[in-house]
Nucleic acid binder design. Structure first.
Lengths: 302, 302
DNA sequence: GCCATTTCATAGTTTGTTCTTATGATTGAA
DNA sequence: TTCAATCATAAGAACAAACTATGAAATGGC
């Protein structure tokens, strides 16, 4: 058995990601020619074509694509092995690359960093903020190890662990709050008066379904890119919005003219951890869950 | 990320199996010093001890043992990747290392070899005969790819596929057959008159449970090591035995004075395939199952 | 159409890693 | 004490992987 060189398999994966020899070589800190010959050597070793080259351009063959996928898994496993050995088997040390969505991250980072420092002092945590879709891609590619997302969401090949609930609140300027229907019925609000985030933020979908806003005319066409924008819009009496309690707890509407009104029963999103099925670091991830859970809003009985 | 050399990880696994630098080096076709320094380099790379050396002898540290286990998995995955790429994605070529238990192997080998030649001509099959326990160990270690076993049996981490039934028959010398109770009731046979295989053959357990022989005095203390021995014992009028129909179909009692009597209803073993959960070669294994199944006894309605 | 640019392949050389042989050092058995 | 077994170490040979420089084919702007 002639074993392939993991470094060269990594070149192959990077080439697939960059679709360009030069850029891939740069990312691997080698010269373009090194990467080029390494790929050719892999093809020789396998005795089959991974790329179809034609006139200084190339496409991956379907075998090549399959091999890339398998390489990603193999490299992931190899790096977990090295991490494991380097941490001398200590489950609570090493590095965790943690991804968090933007509607959770700013309200949780401070508490998490403190919690990790106290309860997992040997652990290095690298935090990364991005949308759910991007984070999930990076998770399956091994670029991240663990995600904090809003659930429910479909995560094929991954395991979820629910950490807590995060209820939505209707946010209104105090001058407008008095004229709201009582009991609160969102369907009675003016057309286009509810501001939500851009579609790529999963909170929009969760708020829509949790608050029964499907097919409703009340949602504004203006889509904000952050919760802070929503606060500004509402504070300018331009309309209403929804914010998660997590954000309210972090004083997001302090120093504004806004008031928060409990949305209807059952209007919440769940917050949970997501990791690759088949990771070897479940014990660590569970511990992280135990640290994060108390930072989430307490369940209120209503 | 500095990637470890898979060849060196293989050295480590071999050292663990041989518990001796010299022998391990021989098996890897390198010099003893090569292996010695490779292991030390691995330790440097990991920054932790894999072996405790003392006075020219050594033991694996508990970390070392854990690393060995992970290495086995990694090497297994790597070799599957290489096989896959070398077969250019052709599911029906390459090599399958197939293990079969001794109470099945001799009666199936001829038909299997013919079947594989006809229906999977590009496939190389390496056959190996051993007890269930040994085969399962080799399967999980990646030394074998696929097993043909008698079921039911517990196979953690593995998937099973039932191929067919193999009914047990009571075997008696023709001079003794007339004096058997009618209808046949095994509990009426003389004490210690039934010969079975040694305990390590799973057929013993299957015959015992299928024929209701638990806690029965009829089983002899003499434990045979092969079905051929059982035939000899029965043929010498020393007592009775059970044989699977699979063996009878292969003329195991031709040229003897023996007759086969159908054992009671429900007295059979199942024969099935077993492979590692998570293999990438299921399609091939299913095809192999389709080739082997017709070689097994036809289900007879009784 | 022409020239600059982009892109991947190839050649020759340098660098670095891996392996071998030879040797040393320690232990236990004869 | 001597011999055999066992693992570690050192120095140089063999091999693999990297770099620089260059070539060749296509694309795009002028």
């Amino acid at each position: 058995m002639k074993w392939p060189n993991l470094k060269h398999l990594h070149y192959l994966v990077t080439l697939h990601q960059e679709q360009n020899f030069h850029k891939a070589a740069q990312r691997c800190s080698v010269s373009q020619s090194t990467l080029s010959t390494a790929i050719q050597n892999l093809e020789d070793h396998f005795g089959s074509q991974l790329l179809e080259r034609e006139h200084k351009t190339f496409v991956f063959t379907s075998l090549g694509l399959d091999v890339v996928e398998k390489c990603k898994v193999l490299l992931q496993d190899a790096s977990e092995l090295v991490e494991f050995a380097q941490n001398a088997g200590h489950w609570d040390s090493g590095t965790v690359k943690l991804g968090v969505i933007p509607t959770i991250a700013p309200f949780l980072f401070e508490g998490m960093i403190g919690g990790f420092k106290s309860f997992l002092p040997k652990l290095t945590v690298e935090l990364q903020e991005d949308t759910t879709d991007n984070l999930l891609l990076q998770l399956t590619d091994g670029e991240l190890d663990l995600l904090i997302l809003a659930l429910p969401i479909d995560t094929p090949g991954c395991k979820q662990m629910v950490l807590g609930h995060d209820p939505f609140h209707l946010i209104a300027h105090k001058d407008l709050a008095g004229s709201l229907p009582d009991p609160l019925d969102i369907r009675l609000l003016p057309k286009r008066s509810i501001f939500l985030l851009q579609q790529e933020h999963c909170m929009t979908g969760h708020a829509v379904s949790a608050c029964g806003l499907q097919h409703q005319d009340q949602v504004s066409n203006l889509a904000a890119s952050s919760l802070y924008t929503l606060v500004q819009l509402a504070n300018s009496k331009l309309g209403y919005t929804f914010l998660p309690e997590l954000a309210l707890n972090q004083q997001i509407i302090t120093n504004t003219e806004l008031v928060a009104l409990p949305a209807e029963q059952g209007a919440w999103r769940e917050i949970g951890l997501v990791w690759r099925a088949g990771t070897t670091r479940m014990q660590l991830f569970r511990r992280i869950g135990e640290i994060v859970a108390p930072l989430l809003p307490l369940p209120t009985l209503r």
